[in-house]
Design a protein around this nucleic acid. Structure first.
Lengths: 212, 212
DNA sequence: CAGAGAATCGGACTAGAGTCCGCTTATGCC
DNA sequence: GGCATAAGCGGACTCTAGTCCGATTCTCTG
């Protein structure tokens, strides 16, 4: 198991009495931070140039000027590296959902928020399809373990109407056609528009919105 | 590319004038047939004993008494081997759909046939989850390329009501939560019953059956 | 039954993911 | 500044999927 995966950025928001806390928050060593940055930079550059698929972890380590061990200790595996690269973009979407303007953010009716989320998620997905695919599939079951999926799932489950029989399952089912694997397979056949509209329509009929 | 993948078992059902056909159907060589059978038998035994995940292609080749090259030439890759092992069971379901008794087979209303199919598919999936998962995920995009998926997809698309906006997409979306990956991830959390009922409910609301 | 030709065989080989552990180096303390 | 110590490093190593091609074996024909 890797030592840290994503570093000490998840500092607690709860204020503590520092005098009582003789152990200061475990700071990241300077060399570690430098290497983390070098790896992310090198990976981004290599992915941009050669495509996500055809870049090996060895190449990334070499380009970043670190050993393979360092790379894997930091990010766990290929899917962890992809997740780290997506972090910024993902966080932006999450913040827009939690505190941005409606209908994506709070304040609009649930059905509008659901549609806005799905629409925004399709944007995010299409924009980073290869990376997201790597983050979801390079390790079996990765998609369902990462924090982001749990966030999307909870958000969808909450937005479903109260009468929905099994909102937990239904939220999973609505997210299933948004897996990178599924979208990657369908994109050449259907194109982005049909995928986007199909997802929105599926959600509509699931929540029974348009009583016509 | 492998020489044959699944052998000459897909003989045409159309009667032909044998005298006009100077080239007899390419028979499978006796040693090839023997090896194919030995491989399938060895793989089934090893999978049953150690679980699908932890058996390597080397082990299978060794147990079957053939070289690795033979194994890969015959079945293409791990997902091809899994597909071959599933072939019988899969075919049975397909035949029940095409010519069996209703509601799975022809004769019942489309909505009943759809429900019957989904129910039967969940049975099939839960019964062979690991093998199906291997057949769908060991190669990227495998699920959507194999013939079986196309069959299920077409069947679902045909059963959707005429008013469905994009039946092609909708059929894909209904099948998405039935990927082995998705079900494997959800099974520990939700259990088989909620999965089965969730799928059926999703289909119902998609086709708008219960006007309630 | 012998010979030709093609299909098949099988193990050595490549390549990439992920692990391990002795060595190095940053950090906090004196 | 020097030292103790633990965090961090990195490359050699393992394990597995998948490829390649010279050697082998089968099948058909005469």
């Amino acid at each position: 198991m890797p030592d840290d995966i994503n570093g000490p950025q998840s500092a607690s928001a709860i204020p503590v009495d520092l005098d009582l806390l003789r152990t200061p928050p475990p700071r990241e060593r300077a060399d570690a931070a430098r290497n983390r940055a070098a790896i992310l930079e090198a990976a981004a550059a290599l992915f941009a140039e050669h495509g996500v698929e055809s870049v090996s972890m060895d190449q990334i380590a070499t380009a970043a000027g670190v050993g393979k061990g360092t790379l894997f200790r930091r990010f766990g595996d290929k899917s962890g590296l992809a997740t780290a690269l997506l972090d910024t973009r993902e966080r932006a979407l999450q913040e827009a959902i939690l505190g941005g303007p409606p209908p994506l953010g709070p304040g609009a009716p649930a059905e509008d928020r659901l549609a806005a989320f799905l629409d925004a998620y399709v944007d995010y997905l299409l924009e980073h399809l290869d990376l997201i695919r790597m983050s979801e599939t390079s390790t079996p079951g990765a998609r369902y373990r990462i924090g982001a999926y749990r966030f999307w799932h909870r958000h969808v489950a909450i937005l479903l109407p109260a009468k929905t029989p099994d909102p937990t399952y239904t939220a999973h089912a609505l997210l299933a056609p948004l897996s990178a694997e599924h979208v990657t397979a369908l994109l050449p056949e259907l194109g982005p528009t049909r995928i986007r509209e199909g997802v929105l329509h599926l959600a509509e009929s699931t929540i029974g919105t348009p009583p016509r």
